[in-house]
Measured scan of single mutants.
Amino acid sequence: MTSCHIAEEHIQKVAIFGGTHGNELTGVFLVKHWLENGAEIQRTGLEVKPFITNPRAVKKCTRYIDCDLNRIFDLENLGKKMSEDLPYEVRRAQEINHLFGPKDSEDSYDIIFDLHNTTSNMGCTLILEDSRNNFLIQMFHYIKTSLAPLPCYVYLIEHPSLKYATTRSIAKYPVGIEVGPQPQGVLRADILDQMRKMIKHALDFIHHFNEGKEFPPCAIEVYKIIEKVDYPRDENGEIAAIIHPNLQDQDWKPLHPGDPMFLTLDGKTIPLGGDCTVYPVFVNEAAYYEKKEAFAKTTKLTLNAKSIRCCLH
């Protein structure tokens, strides 16, 4: 018999989150649709729960009410004593943790798909938090293969000092899905179709896995975050240069030392320094102006996964 890495157990509980950011409308629209008619997301033997994560922000069509829901799922915020004085999103995070967690427990949901849009030209993107997770690498390989020839990129946010504390991190297997470009507060049919297909293929993978299909060893190309880059700023902290036209919409493309990065209003080009080629992502993302992030630098690498098969009882 072929030796293989056996994944822990079959997958039982899956959640699909929309509206973690209330103005990213593809996930909101799909989740609302699936709450009314969820036939397309159901798979035999699998509990799939669509869920609106930040209903107040969705109602106002804004990213958040008090603070970013997708950055506060750490033990400090989840452990705060519940009171009306807490920011709305912290209270909501505790409610979500109660419903789908608790985080880092045996009772937490197996998989959470968190649906997002970006204003950046990132196409279909899967966000991975753990480079050693054979199950998710296999799932992402399946999704990428199923979507081809449509490109699907994998963004690895594993980093020693950049801690995200994402909404989906309460699950055993957290999956971020990011599709763009799409303006905030807008629905685009092409973007919706791409996100819908990503979810379909992900659920198909889980179904095949649960039925005992063995997935042979595989490898995927990923883009691992190195650092986030702020806009150049003046002495008052105001933005002093904008994304250069040569960099705009060039997510995932190589940016070499000396290539144009920013452009000042008086026409001066600010190039990339250093001696390493990087791959920019979230270029000129609207939501990241407040976070002082013009783009993120990534490096390209390959992740390998062992063969996996479900432990059938």
Rank of each mutant, 00 (worst) to 15 (best):
P160I: 10
P50L: 06
V229K: 03
Y231M: 06
N210E: 05
K213E: 06
T125L: 05
L75Y: 09
K224T: 06
D66F: 06
I177N: 03
E76D: 14
A240P: 00
D107S: 13
I177P: 02
T299W: 10
G176W: 10
L115S: 03
L75F: 14
E235V: 09
M261I: 10
K59I: 15
K228S: 14
A189S: 11
L187F: 04
T62N: 14
N37E: 10
P260A: 06
S3P: 14
D249N: 07
Y153P: 09
E36F: 15
I52Q: 03
C124W: 00
A287H: 15
V154S: 03
E47M: 12
C67I: 09
A286G: 14
L75H: 14
V14P: 01
E129R: 09
K81F: 13
F205M: 03
N37R: 10
K306E: 14
T2P: 11
K59A: 12
T20I: 03
R132E: 08
A93N: 06
A39S: 07
V28N: 06
E293L: 15
P232I: 04
Q182M: 06
C152N: 00
I96V: 13
K144F: 04
V222E: 00
G274E: 08
R56K: 14
H208R: 10
D130T: 04
I65H: 12
I143Q: 00
P149C: 04
D107M: 15
D74H: 12
C276R: 12
I199S: 00
D114G: 03
L35Q: 15
I96S: 06
E106Y: 09
R233M: 07
G274M: 04
A15L: 05
D251Q: 03
T44N: 14
H33K: 14
A148R: 11
G79W: 10
E84Q: 10
V222F: 01
N54A: 04
H256L: 11
L301M: 09
E227L: 00
E8F: 12
H313Q: 07
E221V: 03
N304H: 12
K13N: 13
F140D: 01
L156R: 01
D114S: 06
Y289S: 14
F100S: 05
N304P: 13
R309T: 10
Y231C: 02
E178R: 14
G237N: 13
V28F: 08
L150A: 14
P183K: 02
